[in-house]
Amino acid sequence: MSAARDPEREPKNGVPASKSSADGDLRRAVLDQADITRALTRIAHEILERNKGAADVVLLGVPTRGVELARRIGERIASVEGGFGAVGALDVTMYRDDLRLRPTRALGHTDIPDGGIDGKIVVLVDDVLFSGRTIRAALTALDDLGRPRAVQLAVLVDRGHRELPIRADFVGKNLPTSADERVAVYLHESDGREAVVIAKGPATEGGAS
């Protein structure tokens, strides 16, 4: 006789809802592909509503997954306001306050759309908002690029545990977590699968936070 299926352990887009191992690791998927799609669509509409259109909006993704998310949000904005293409990337590696602690961190790529950021509404896009130190670095990096009229922040997941007074303007999912958990974001472009997963283990900035 076959064992009964446990729906809590059924995979969501290739990621098990929960997975245990001998070392005590425990993972659970909290967002699947459909959830991520809905969250990004909502964020795009909220950006348009708050800024009364996208004429002055520039989306800058923080590498790596923030860039992918910015592109998707930009596509959704373009579907409402044709011609929108002000999407780029902002590498914050050399502006991080932990660079001396992690000197082997790879450089990312900065790509500013034509027209620059002076007088624009810059929306920074990242996958997970955690301590706030990555976004602090992004704000410092912007100082070297121009003077935007305003800076806003969009994140797929806000997991709390802020160490700096930074908050997101647009959030896909508020996800309460404990300090001993990691939040990992998987996207098709970089990972070949789509999910947001909570796992036990020390938190890091970027990718798994």
Rank of each mutant, 00 (worst) to 15 (best):
G61S: 07
A86K: 05
I198D: 05
F170C: 08
A208S: 12
N51Y: 14
H188Q: 07
I77K: 02
I77P: 00
V157P: 00
G201Y: 04
G24I: 12
H109T: 13
N51H: 13
E49Q: 05
R167Y: 13
V87Q: 02
A78F: 02
P148L: 02
G160D: 06
P16R: 12
V197N: 05
S79G: 12
A179G: 01
L31Q: 00
D32N: 10
E49T: 06
L156K: 03
H161V: 00
S178A: 07
D35F: 04
L187F: 05
Y95C: 11
Y95F: 15
S131L: 05
S131M: 08
Q33N: 08
A39T: 03
G24D: 14
D111P: 00
P165S: 06
E81W: 08
L156V: 05
P202R: 13
R28W: 15
G53I: 03
D143R: 04
G119D: 12
P7D: 05
V122M: 06
L69F: 12
D35L: 00
A55K: 10
L175I: 10
N51C: 13
A70R: 14
G83E: 02
S21Y: 12
D191P: 11
L60E: 01
R28L: 15
D32M: 10
H109Q: 02
A44Q: 02
R162N: 04
A78I: 03
V67N: 03
V197S: 09
L26K: 14
S18F: 15
G88H: 06
D169W: 04
E68V: 14
G115Q: 15
